[in-house]
Design a protein around this nucleic acid. Sequence first.
RNA 1: GCGAACUUGGCGGAAUGGUAGACGCAGGAGACUUAAAAUCUCCAGCCUGUAAAGGCGUGCGGGUUCGAGUCCCGCAGUUCGCACCA
Length: 886
Amino acid sequence: MTQPANTSTTPAHPATGVSFDFQTVEPRWQKAWNEAGVFTVPDVPPADKPKYYVLEMFPYPSGQLHMGHVRNYALGDVVARYKRARGYAVLHPMGWDAFGLPAENAARERGVHPQDWTLKNIAAMRATLQRLGFSLNWDREIATCLPEYYGKQQKLFLDFLQAGLVERRESWVNWDPIDQTVLANEQVVEGRGWRSGALIEKKKLSQWFLKITDFAEDLLDGLKTLDRWPDRVRTMQERWIGRSEGAHITFSLHQPPQGLTNEGLDSNLNAVEVFTTRPDTLFGMSFLAIAPDHPLAAYVAQSNKDAAEFIAECRRLGTSVEAVETAEKRGFDTGLRVNHPFMDKSFPIWIANFVLMDYGTGALFGCPSGDQRDLDFAHKYNLPVTPVVLPQGKDQADFAITKNAFTGDGTLINSGFLDGLSTEEARKEAITRLEELGVGKGVVNWRLRDWGVSRQRYWGCPIPVIHCESCGPVPVPDAQLPVKLPEDVTFDKPGNPLDHHATWKHVACPKCGKPAVRETDTFDTFVDSSWYFARFTAPHAPTPTVRDAADGWLAVDQYIGGIEHAILHLLYARFFTRAMRKTGHLDLSEPFAGLFTQGMVNHESYKDAAGNWLYPEEVDLRPEGAVKRGTEDAVTVGRVEKMSKSKRNTVSPEAIIERFGSDTARWFVLSDSPPERDMEWTEAGVSGAARFAQRLFRLVRTVAETVPAQNTCPADIASEADTLRRATHRTIAAVTEALEAFTINVAVARIHELTSALADAEKTPELDGIAFARREAARVLCQLCAPMMPHLAEEMFALLEPGKTMVVELPWPEADPSLLAATQVTLAVQIMGKLRGKIDAAPDEDSAAVIARAEAEPNVARLLEGKRIVKRIHVPNRIVNFVTAG
RNA sequence: GCGAACUUGGCGGAAUGGUAGACGCAGGAGACUUAAAAUCUCCAGCCUGUAAAGGCGUGCGGGUUCGAGUCCCGCAGUUCGCACCA
């Protein structure tokens, strides 16, 4: 569906006003691009071009595009337009991450149906994106909340189920006893439900899990191949997956505890299995700690009220790791004891609030001298501390552990048969001995847990399963897909509307035909975003993917989004890709070959005297201080922070486009700050960007109107013309390099420089060759700024070369290598590394001549007088450094 | 608490181990204008000095090097993530 480059026409009459009239010009070029179909690509990439898939993380349709989106999509559009100009077939689609809690909150708060709310938001945000002129394939738009998308997701889930990648098991959720609903971690504020204020409890529910741990090793190994990902993201994922080598150790119970009988005691409760990465410190043990959710804890609680009370308290902490780990370390002594595997000693079993049931075996042995948490715990409850690792260079006689545990490597002491061994040797020896005794073994443990995907919510993709009393959970047959969300739901009672829907829920079992009920849970919205990049390659196909399309376009060559997704979303998408390969939907492991994480858009915050937050448009910034517009009341300027509704420090993209135009908005978010870093939105900055756009437009228009066109460069040109030509070609090289390196702020700076050079040339319009050089510079400026300010670029180019092709159809300019070489270089002359003068030299000039000239430089010669030069260092074209003595 | 990163003029930032502060914003001086806006020209890290020049300077403290914003070690501050927000 792409159009040949020479068939499109440029609009007949570019703006004729005194300056760049963005309000009429921008929509006109958007129309011209669309009519020429320049951004449309086929489902299977064309054979005559290399393909390039650029994707920005799709937005959640919250209602309004915000500046963070503008920055994200402006960055992606620079890449898309640049790669297009470099001759690639570019896939650059857009969609909506349209399921999620905010739609349900809106339904409960304002009585609007989640679907209406979402679709309305999508329409508003799509309009803004289109106004911004991004080079998107709008014919590929998807929304995850439409059955066309989520029905295919249900198919994927059933295929995963078939392939053994899905399991049903119990797990803990945050339960709000008043609202009778499950809460997300973010809905739990200081241990209470955000709406009801009730103390929340952990509750166990049967839920669906995707077996991401099946791929733990592969997900870890795959990170090594992702050489176009930021190191920090790879490191974070590596830590998250968390491969650790250690041992499982079985501690047998010392004696049946008082008041407890073995009756009802599971055989594995006769012993406690722990995981440790430090079997070498086993002789330093002083207690054994189990998670509050450990089966043994539950067993103790049956007959011990205090234990039950302590466990209940721990449960009120909620399910987030952060809550558990920041809470004060507390424990409860069960009175039970375990035998030490190597020593004839027993140690107490504590229930401790910092032990996680989800990690390892939910139990650990405490070695206070070798672990800070264990040490703090030991001090609090008066448990003994035995040092077992002696740091290098310390003497055992005066080595003691007081406030700080020693976690490093050293030599084993107080450790029986391990004494004298290194930490590493002791680890191996301890495991060998445990295995010989049959009470332990060396294991690889993963921090990564399986992915619980069940959510007790309405506004999500229904999980396509039917529960039958006789058959158990039964997959919905393919022919009955998609399982559509019922639209006739109400949010007037607490809980999930699907759960109390009269008809939707009750169906016949597909297997036996008896009455059964649908699964009323829906998928975690991370599931939706785990495969959308693949769906974009064949967005309207009846199957989740079409292999020719997916194989042709994937992997995503450049993925762009916020650092906040560094772990979960990216890891889930990497897992889904593997699972989809296993089930035949895809044929690759790594979905995102290149990843770029952009920073946030921040803004100053403002407060009036009463402490109320003010919107930026309510404030006048004056040199003598900020005041409230209209009232002149003093305003306190707060810190620069992430734009947020609660602080009212937001700027609406719509308003900015209205005032300054899309190109200015785009140019500003790309200027100044490096894309990966946070940027500050300022009024002064955006008006500066607007001034530059107008200035560039005026300069190019002057060239178009006053400088005659010339096809070839005259043989003899004035040095001013040569200077401009060199600036032009250096800028092509520099901007190209900057765009390749994603340092777009540097590309912007180089374009500023060439603009100034073109302005300088206006002063000498009569010189030989200057006309050619000016037209060349103007044309190049159109092309170089086009990825950032595409409308302005088209408008200027239409003035410069009327009736020809659009910039969007021109190939990227090439720098002439003969114009890149410097004709003269300036070298710094240093004495002992301090700058003392400068000299000029020919490029790559002979060392001896350069050094002689440097030594003779007056200021250098003066300072060298009476000193002995011991070394002369010459770095060609850079510096000369004299090392002196005495 | 654990994990990851970031820190350079008044501000955003630039800088293959080689002239720190490119480019921009804000500021100052001047030109144009009846005036303002807009535009254009010039100045500008801090300290001493008329100048020439010199001293100091990339969060703080050490180290490697002829030479460190850049590499190494330690510290502080800020930001992000922590599995049911997306």
